[in-house]
Amino acid sequence: QRDPAYAAARAAGQVGEKMDGYLGIVGASTPELQAMVNDINNRRRALYVQRAQAESATLEQYAFTAGCVAIAATVEGEMYQAPDGSWQRRTSAPPQRDSRCPR
């Protein structure tokens, strides 16, 4: 039940999943898009802080792991960040993921 604006931005490839577990803006940013991404990342960070503490892991690690899962969960047409840092559009093939990502 994603926010319609967010769902549209994902589908349009304006935003994509970054390796560090946060949402990134692909290409041109707009104040509205930036505000939406910030809001989503604020929420993700609060979630990661809470889960990291519970799992006694660092925020960074938890976020990174979540990134792996999120990228894996992207559907065709959505954007994600490849290990080399570049933005890739998801095809039917599985996404390129960091070596450290768990299967």
Binding site: M36, N42, A46
Partner: peptide, 14 residues
């Protein structure tokens, strides 16, 4: 807050 003002969007959440 975002329901009241767009200024809060992306600054403070939850």
């Amino acid at each position: 807050p975002r329901d009241l003002s767009e200024l809060a969007y992306g600054v403070v959440s939850l």
